[in-house]
Design a protein around this nucleic acid. Sequence first.
DNA 1: GTTTTATTTGACTGATTGGTCAAGTAAAAT
DNA 2: ATTTTACTTGACCAATCAGTCAAATAAAAC
Lengths: 131, 131
Amino acid sequence: MGRKKSFDQHIVVAQMSTLFVQRGFEGTSLDDLVTATGLLRGSLYSEFGSKQGMFMACLKANLKKQPLDDVTWRLLLVAMLELTSNSQAVNEIVSQWYAKQNSPNIATQLGQQVLKHSHILSGDNDNGKRS
Amino acid sequence: MGRKKSFDQHIVVAQMSTLFVQRGFEGTSLDDLVTATGLLRGSLYSEFGSKQGMFMACLKANLKKQPLDDVTWRLLLVAMLELTSNSQAVNEIVSQWYAKQNSPNIATQLGQQVLKHSHILSGDNDNGKRS
DNA sequence: GTTTTATTTGACTGATTGGTCAAGTAAAAT
DNA sequence: ATTTTACTTGACCAATCAGTCAAATAAAAC
């Protein structure tokens, strides 16, 4: 068997999901992920293979939820706007999810998430500052 | 007066808009913008001040169109997902636009643009390659 | 023609990016 | 107790990032 893993996949995926949701895919750096998870780069890469692998783990895990929560909708948005047109693998995940949907108002739900995320007309942006 | 500008603002803004629409804000590099416009960094910075200034020029110029075309909708999406929550200046532009809208289905239109951009269920992604 | 002003040029910078890997460590297997 | 296996550690890397600026250039003003 060898050494035991020092982390719980589910927790790590949840921590990474929070980041991807807040900052998007390109907006989230490996350093961000290292800080948020408490793992180091080597562990993250041996577990997920690549940054895209980390995102896909988040997307797959969250898509299992029913009904979809805000985190999952926002991961779908990030996938569709940043990854779907460049990555076959992510495209397939999202396409398979979309094919199963029969609700006619997916677009509306996606759009509502965009509006919610944008913080428009609320004025609570931080002018680029990060904690 | 001094030396004349070697470019037409409108054309440069249109060229930059195409890039921001295709690759998003963070996904578009200064090198990309230099290549697409034919201008060099110094010219771009003396004209627009910053990368965000370049994006804002694109957004402002496109929002004058009526009715909004796909490019403008996509710029709004990019703004809302990548900039609005971190940049007061971009937030104000989008907020002012949004306040003037009285259509009840903005969310739906935004969502349709997300779906259109995602290339889902069409399979024509390029696995990350760039021309 | 000389000076002044505005723009272009592109090499350069320090910071940050995603990703690697040899060495170290902890557990199981023998 | 020793070996083997699996995971962790973090320094390191080449590439890329947004942004700068002194020097060169072109036009207007005189």
